[in-house]
Design a protein around this nucleic acid. Structure first.
Lengths: 223, 223
DNA sequence: TTCATAATTTTGTTATAACAAAAATCATGA
DNA sequence: TCATGATTTTTGTTATAACAAAATTATGAA
């Protein structure tokens, strides 16, 4: 079931760009240009999250935010950096994520894919690799065993360890393990996962699990 | 070699969004916020195309456009619909493609992927399926043979026939053959191409050719 | 005729062997 | 020691069998 994101804006171009980005990340986008549109959309479809465009909306969005939060929806908002009072109002209304302009698509996507806000992301980045794992450029040492790995396999394994069992999409793996702006097909990830699996096959407590239609997660049993 | 698109703008958010869109379509984006930046970029890297943001540039872009065209680069421009004089100046400067605001990502991508401008696209859509092919919902009849096909295979074959041997990317196939806003993995396309190939295997004059790293094209020998 | 259920078809996704291309490393000779 | 060519390793992509899920069609009972 493709999650549907309701974009509340009267900025047509922003919507077109966002719709494109969302679509290519596995979301569907819907446009609401008025409060009536918002009500109609929430009634007729199962909306997964709402994105409020503060610059592209003629009135104060805090009441609408409160209403949407009252229905249990996740709500994010695009907020101008200089509109602090508005930001505060939205936070009081229960806003889940404020995304300041200029908009960073990756932060928006992180919000939509359930990744915690940056402050928590920073906290989580201190989730280091468990001490049992010692990485080398072409290998990993764990449980007294030294496993040869290609550099790409090393990067993927390290990332999955840092994620501590959470599901990673292929796109997240690409962003984490490939050099910046390096475009590869998502099925390239699948092939590397297979290579990593074969390389670590002899480790009984470590396994890469496939989550159908979502991505991959690491299972590691400490002992 | 990933094509590099130089985006000339001082609108940070537009750049972030465009960079994201371009990146996920297999392009790399670079930002130039001044004419010096443009010159630096063109000197230091092999730029495949340039995109001029007329709203996000402080001066007339026609001279820069002429300069870039002089170097043989493809140049597109984002142009406000009400800036006709500017549009004319850019056309006189040799502009390849004017994309009016609000920006449609698919039109931008069509330009970047070498698809002809819309006027030519409309012309090309009259390239009907050759008369030898008669399509049914679950089959195609050609050369006196009736080949059973799944509906998706019918849509893919029809699209490839209309393309008359031109290469289609997986994304183009998805946009043409799948319902609007339907998100599938690009490897889903590969699987359907395989199924289509098996279905039409007995037709000696019809073949789906793989273009490594690009997509697919149909080979059909009339006779 | 309608509707619920089962069966079948279609579509989406995964795994992995294999091939293509690029990058890194090694060997050799000047 | 260094440049160059050869070899090996690494990475990206493709093909396709197989599995999972969704959609459509068929069937039988009410």
């Amino acid at each position: 079931m493709t999650p549907i994101i309701l974009v509340c804006s009267q900025d047509a171009e922003l919507y077109l760009l966002l719709a494109h980005v969302l679509h290519s990340e596995g979301f569907e986008a819907r446009l609401a240009a008025s409060e009536d549109d918002v009500m109609d959309a929430c009634t007729s479809e199962e909306i997964s999250a709402v994105l409020l465009d503060c610059a592209g909306w003629p009135s104060d969005l805090a009441p609408l935010c409160a209403l949407l939060k009252g229905t249990g929806l996740s709500v994010g908002a695009l907020i101008d950096g200089n509109m602090r009072a508005q930001h505060l109002q939205l936070i009081k209304a229960g806003l889940d994520e404020g995304i300041t302009r200029p908009l960073s698509p990756s932060k928006l996507l992180a919000f939509l894919q359930g990744i915690r806000p940056r402050s928590e992301a920073v906290t989580r980045s201190s989730f280091a690799v468990p001490a049992e794992f010692v990485f080398e450029p072409h290998a990993v040492v764990v449980s007294g065993k030294r496993i040869s790995l290609a550099p790409m396999e090393v990067r993927i394994l390290r990332f999955l360890l840092e994620r501590q069992g959470q599901i990673s999409t292929r796109q997240q793996l690409i962003e984490a393990a490939w050099p910046d702006r390096h475009a590869v097909e998502s099925r390239t990830v699948d092939v590397h996962i297979g290579r990593l699996r074969r390389a670590i096959a002899e480790l009984r407590d470590l396994r890469v699990r496939t989550v159908y239609g979502a991505g991959y997660a690491l299972e590691f049993h400490y002992g």
